[in-house]
Nucleic acid binder design. Structure first.
Lengths: 137, 137
DNA sequence: TTATTATAAAGGAATCATTACGATTTGTAA
DNA sequence: TTACAAATCGTAATGATTCCTTTATAATAA
């Protein structure tokens, strides 16, 4: 995992951000879990290592890491969830409502939508697909 | 608008719900605005008529009306927004980020997604398309 | 390596959306 | 018109997120 972490360190440095222990621990957590985590889950996990970690730090870093595209986020039932950003190409996710496992979905019909609404300019979109994964079904 | 309202009264009655003044006023507001409104906006509008209207009533009715498909909702920037449900067939929305105007989008590739992920069972999905409408562009 | 400086984190209070709940009122059916 | 269940009120509680001031720490230059 060391090489993997190096990549993230470079990314932080390239954005003029400091490489702090808490940021790196957060990234490691997201790499290990590889699923959507809420701020609260992050707090619970990191509290074991840093008993005094504040929510301010968690939220600030979650959004900082999102800005530099280390994380991606989605609002699920009024709670913002974050996961490690999995690849560079455009994609969406299937999310298992039972276990929270996610799968990448490649097909995205944004061009079809744009051609259906010729007079508007689509700048972004949100697609999320929910259901039961093979294991939970 | 009277005939329009009658339709909603029937819908409420058919679901065994009471036709209350506040519910009807809420429906009228959504019909008049025809766009996504937050609970707070609903409160502000209805407060003029019912100075003591409680949030409990607003939220309960918003979700009640959603249950019987009078309203549809979406979470936008951590706040739940509601709009009058515009038709009976499955569709999604384009939402103008400038003026909040919405347009119906008919194309939905849920079958394509299901065939891309054959081993999972898709139970529901969320699609929202953002951008600038013709007027705001 | 040390000193400097700017960014990050701590600790805790504040805010915002949403929900909960006992007491009271209102719509509906008999 | 009455009785009862459903809806509303008034207000408190909750949960997620943000703000603020002080303190600590990482990066950088000497």
């Amino acid at each position: 995992m060391a090489a993997e972490l190096k990549k993230y360190k470079t990314k932080l440095r390239d954005h003029g951000l400091k490489i702090t222990e808490k940021r790196m621990t957060m990234i490691e957590l997201f790499l290990k879990e590889d699923r959507y985590l809420s701020a609260k889950e992050v707090q619970e996990q990191l509290h074991k290592i840093y008993p005094s970690l504040s929510y301010d730090t968690i939220y600030r870093n979650l959004y900082t890491l999102k800005e530099i595209e280390v994380l991606e986020n989605t609002n699920f039932e009024g709670e913002m969830q974050f996961k490690i950003s999995c690849s560079d190409h455009h994609h969406h996710h299937f999310i298992c409502e039972e276990c929270g496992d996610t799968k990448v979905i490649h097909y995205c019909p944004v061009e079809t939508w744009q051609s259906e609404l010729q007079d508007v300019e689509i700048t972004n979109h949100k697609v999320e697909i929910y259901g039961l994964c093979a294991a939970c079904k």
